[in-house]
Nucleic acid binder design. Sequence first.
DNA 1: CCGGATCCCAGCGGATACTG
DNA 2: CAGTATCCGCTGGGATCCGG
Lengths: 104, 104
Amino acid sequence: MTEKSCLLEPVFDLFGKKWTTLILREIMNGNNHYGKLLKIIPNISSRTLSSRLRMLEENGIVIRNVYDTIPPSVEYNLTKIGQKTRKIFVAMSEWQAEWKKVND
Amino acid sequence: MTEKSCLLEPVFDLFGKKWTTLILREIMNGNNHYGKLLKIIPNISSRTLSSRLRMLEENGIVIRNVYDTIPPSVEYNLTKIGQKTRKIFVAMSEWQAEWKKVND
DNA sequence: CCGGATCCCAGCGGATACTG
DNA sequence: CAGTATCCGCTGGGATCCGG
């Protein structure tokens, strides 16, 4: 997914990656601490979680807040544009519901 | 993207793969012959095109029609459910437009 | 203990050549 | 024309280790 093969490819570069949508969903649900995400999302490795969160941050979808406490804590929140991804997920969910009916 | 990590993952298993959306778009545009797709889509290999088309067929998104002529010809068309993917692409396009404004 | 960097390997997909 | 076969490089991501 690195080559420019589609206008929508930037979107899939983000959301097409494994775990990304689930992370976003959990942040939307208010689980916005790194450690919480790691516990709540089954089987995700810390490497992958870090990687996805950084990618989302670099793309302006998520904001990273570091609290310099002991123990340290890092919180992630959706930006405005990040919150608008909801519409995409809704469209996908609706399509998937119809697709399952036909396909199974 | 093989493990069940998100309800939407089946959708991303399909559309998150490289080339898939571009192939669908071209079929929507009426370029539905294998050879036409291979020419129109820049840099795609026949191996990958075959693979994607088969995957789309297996998932009921595309129908394969073989015309037993000389030379042989194979045509791909969207199923009903395949056509409904348009809504997802619209939602993504709209989001992407806003995202680009913020991000660049 | 929290957040993340490093190492390493399976699997995706690109290039090329061949078949009915 | 419409694929399949083979080879192989590269990236994603799981296991493991590290700084504070």
